[in-house]
Design a protein around this nucleic acid. Sequence first.
DNA 1: AAAGTGATCATG
DNA 2: ATGATCACTTTG
Length: 172
Amino acid sequence: MKLGKDFYTKRATELAPLLLGKLLCRNIDGKIIKKRITETEIYFGENDSACHASRGKTERTKILYEEGGIAYVYLCYGIHHLFNVVTGLKDFPEAVLIRGIEGYQGPGKLTKFLNIDRALNGEDLVNSDKLWIEDDGYVAKYITTPRIGIDYASEEDRKRLWRFVLTEGELK
DNA sequence: AAAGTGATCATG
DNA sequence: ATGATCACTTTG
């Protein structure tokens, strides 16, 4: 079942674990790939010093302020595209970074595999025929850890357990 | 351990 | 216009 608007308007803190085990679906020139999400991270609001919106709304970050259910894709370190799911309500900047799918651990690796780049920034995940997410009833078990690659953030924000890694699960 | 790589943002 | 920064990956 394809995930709808009501799923994405939940808070990122609630959605990050819920996205584990869901199927990330991509249509590339008619070839459809579906892979289970294995790793996610929360970026939550202007008060989160690791979140891109921590320095306010800009041309790049304005998309985080939209209502949940769209893609936020940006180029990191000049090389890697990173894919986030914008979540929550309009005017509050929050998103969940997809860090891994089956067989492709690493946020830059999965976007390369799925051909996700800035052309998909702002893509509507609820209505898109190119990029969407499905729930097939998989129930996930997971662990939490601090987030990766945010040494520049405040100590308080660095130690938050906002990374979620799938350990096991089953179809129900 | 460190390079490679380029969009973005703050400064001038 | 310029320079610093950066939610990563690969190589040695």
